[in-house]
Amino acid sequence: MLNINNLTVTLGGNKILNGLDLSVPAGEVHAIMGPNGAGKSTLSYTVAGREDYAPTDGDILLEGESILDMSPDERAAKGVFLSFQSPPAIPGVATMNFIRTALNAQRRARGEDEMTSAEFLKVFREHAKTVGLSPEKLKRPFNDGYSGGEKKRMEMLQMALFEPRFCIMDETDSGLDIDALRMVGEVVNSLRGPDRGFLVITHYQRLLDYVKPDRIHVLAGGRIVHSGGPELARELEESGYEQFASEAA
């Protein structure tokens, strides 16, 4: 489904991703773990198409098609969704209006019919309830005055609503309490299916108690230095990343 080959990204003269290879087949959840500064967020921005994170080498293929020349919105319409580590507030932009604009822009790009206000409102409310965001909160401008946890709930609301083909979750667990973690698990598990893939970036084992990964990769020094099954998370929790430092060098 998602194939990343020899991805190299340089930021401010520093090589952050250094020939990274990764393959996530459809239907699977892969987790990426790694020390601070390993390049995890750079990977997520590069796949999503942020212009200042353009690779100097390598390729990213979604279902066999290179997405490197696509703009961020084109990638979104193709089904790439990034749950941001630090989602921004957008003062003055009404939440529901923005999400509906985004959803319909994606549908237009795919040649699908736009969703009417009534249809949208119905699904929006359902998902808002699932992620635990109150109607009062949703009347505010996008993420305006939201806590860190509420912003993550908003990310999950959109992920559930957009039904993307490939989801990248960049430290969605940071700053979440146990109930919110459980909610994240529910959203991911409800979306899991044979045509959808997930890349879950995290520092900790705890999210993986709710979202069971098929594979775990260790990212260090800008490359995948080790891969294993779900048991790898617990090993990393106990022994840390030190053992992979030499492989990354």
Binding site: E51, A77, F84, P88, I90, G92, A102, A109, P141, Q158
Partner: peptide, 28 residues
Amino acid sequence: DTDALFYMRQRGVPEDEAHSLLIDAFGG
């Protein structure tokens, strides 16, 4: 705000439309 702009585009909003939304919000 380039972070807001990228965020909106990541959600599927084309660049021109994202610009307009942010400018309208500013004047709003």
